[in-house]
Amino acid sequence: MAREPKNDPTDRLLSLYEGMLTIRQAEERLKALFADGEVPGFIHLSIGQEAVPVGISASLGPADTVASNHRGHGHALAKGIDLDGFFAEIMGRDSGLCRGRGGSMHVADVSIGMLGANGIVGAGLPITLGSALAHKTRGTDAVAVAYFGDGALAEGVLHECLNIAALWALPMLFACENNGWSEFSPTDRQMKASLKDLAAAFSIPHVEVDGNDVEAVEAAAAECIAALRRGDGPRVLECRTTRVRGHFEGDRQDYRSPDELAGLAATDPIARCRARLAELGVDANRIDAIAEAIDRRVEQAVANARGAPEPSFAAAAADVYTAAEG
């Protein structure tokens, strides 16, 4: 989306709203396409978590890098990934960002600093660490953001990365989307320590924020990222958020209580943002026009993907290694 910084608070909030709604509408469309069999494989939706990447990305520029996880659609879109390439990739077309080789769990565009969603829990963390090391070694003020869930707290590599990032004062933001679920199990049955405890163990400042309040995420992330750019070392930003859908599409979530599921709508970051916009006196027609414009862009992306050719097997097989020169 690569939004221009907006000074007017209403314009700024509208921009954040548009960012979240783009993710929501793209994922709602993917959900329907998946149900209709037009999206193969596994998809993991981030519906309910949109405020986190949108709030963080408001402080990121093109030179900054992010690495993501299996629930990465929002991270990629908020970083500015092309919507046509995004849909075409997830629908398995040659015009996809990864030419149909990665799919939902591997959407990436390194040219805009999106180092990939990832199918392995925690694996984006050391990649982000290396990217942060590159930024520091090259002497730029770019920062690297690792998006991970609370399920990754139990992965050993997180602990390695917290240590090295702190030891070397790397410009790395550990952006945790804490939705309380580690796949099909509540995280409090899997982790003894909290992320706050872990951050403290490595002397990294930890900030906790309501991850469903996009303004709060934006403000907290802006402070963390400013600290990274000053060379103050890593920050942990823990965003309490809500996973509305299952671990993957098709997961019936029998393990969640009906009460919990019934209460999810109240936490919706987009509805909250819309209410805030109404408080600020923004006309409802203006807000609705955003949804309509996104809908047109999404439908165009889906139509473009449907019309795109299937990927070439020969081209895929030729891309395992870089072709020799000459």
Binding site: T65, L125, T128, S131, A134, R138, V157, I164
Partner: peptide, 20 residues
């Protein structure tokens, strides 16, 4: 580096994707 082989290998991937 610390004794952290997974991070060592992962850092190499991330640094290589970021210009080093």
């Amino acid at each position: 580096t610390p004794i952290s082989e997974a991070a060592i290998a992962g850092m190499a991937v991330g640094a290589a994707l970021s210009g080093l």
